[in-house]
Design a protein around this nucleic acid. Sequence first.
DNA 1: CTTATATTTGACACATATGTCAAACATAAG
DNA 2: CTTATGTTTGACATATGTGTCAAATATAAG
Lengths: 213, 213
Amino acid sequence: MKEEEPIDMETRIIEAAKIVFVRKGYEATKMGDIAAEVGISRTALHYYFRTKELLFEAIFGQLMGRLLPNIAILMEEASTILEKIPGIIEQYLSAIKQNPLFPIFIINEMNRNPEHLFQTIMKNSNRIQPLLQLKKQVYDEMENGLLKKRPLIDVASTLLSLVIFPFLIHLPLTAIFLDGDRKAFEKYIDNRASLIIEVMHHLLTPDKNRKQL
Amino acid sequence: MKEEEPIDMETRIIEAAKIVFVRKGYEATKMGDIAAEVGISRTALHYYFRTKELLFEAIFGQLMGRLLPNIAILMEEASTILEKIPGIIEQYLSAIKQNPLFPIFIINEMNRNPEHLFQTIMKNSNRIQPLLQLKKQVYDEMENGLLKKRPLIDVASTLLSLVIFPFLIHLPLTAIFLDGDRKAFEKYIDNRASLIIEVMHHLLTPDKNRKQL
DNA sequence: CTTATATTTGACACATATGTCAAACATAAG
DNA sequence: CTTATGTTTGACATATGTGTCAAATATAAG
């Protein structure tokens, strides 16, 4: 065993495979690409992961897990949805900022193999439980009148759209509005949380409370 | 020549290729898949389009063009931005509703070959001219005080996010919030315009006017 | 019918990618 | 040193995909 080195081979492979799979997609990724990224021969790669599909599955779960924000802590607090929203947005934004290629990767896998995606989510069901709690709290507060009544799909899709989509089109956005300046894009993302909070408050604040603002 | 038939072979091929390319992406699409979709042999397909790349380029421009909403007519009207917004959203939504797989296709091509995408856009520069007009009018109205001053990238990215992203995640949205009912998703999309208008108005209405609402 | 042209096909050559295998090599334990 | 085990490699077999070509077939024009 070669566990003396900083990281063992399987981990190195998985890290390299993540990079290649996420950047090029499943079909376009060749086993040779991954082997080259690791710095070993393609045959050695097959020794650790017999098939491409097995290697892919080994990392897919991890990737999914990392994209899901860690809102479990937030759900433990006895705060209202409107108070939780900034935290939720922050969780999402920072998760994607660390892995800006994940959204497109997940969305592609959704088209390539919806079955697989579904199964992976079911396996990590512990991670989606807080999301179900969140869903329920939103529903309850709408019944209470704490939140304006809206279809949950509107609330969820709006929030996700505003948080995720800019990363998917960061290239044209940067080119058209920021003179191709990457740093400027990061600033734009950092300022984005407040805009999203503003929109979500607008959507969820009951009309009677609106005038108080 | 076989021009007696309803549509000639090149058109049939292009239509079939669109379907396959858009659904599976460039790498995953095999010439044989397209040939099968048309109902001819792979060799016959090569007779009309010598290479896969040529076939792809033949349809890519068309696809881009169809995704860009036809806002030229809207720009001819002497209306304000706030008056134009519903029309713009309607244009986008109907364009994507007719081709719900286009957004993911374009975004993928953006990663696969940014150069190619850029060149294609430059060729159809006549189609982006109205967008530049739109950009200018937004800027002018912000200067006039007709619109609340905001970074243009915020306005554009918010609008595009709200319009496009729900189509990218239509599968999980439908599964989680609509019991997998496709018809319900269509209804959700149809109701979406008003929500987006509401949000854009909130973002763009100057504070002094807000209270009047 | 004959000729010219367009279209289709099967066979081929080539390239790339996957996965297996046995042999070589390294390493740690006895 | 010897053995057992883990690791790496090169060679191989197989599969799939691309593109070319010449021969076969259909179609239209003379």
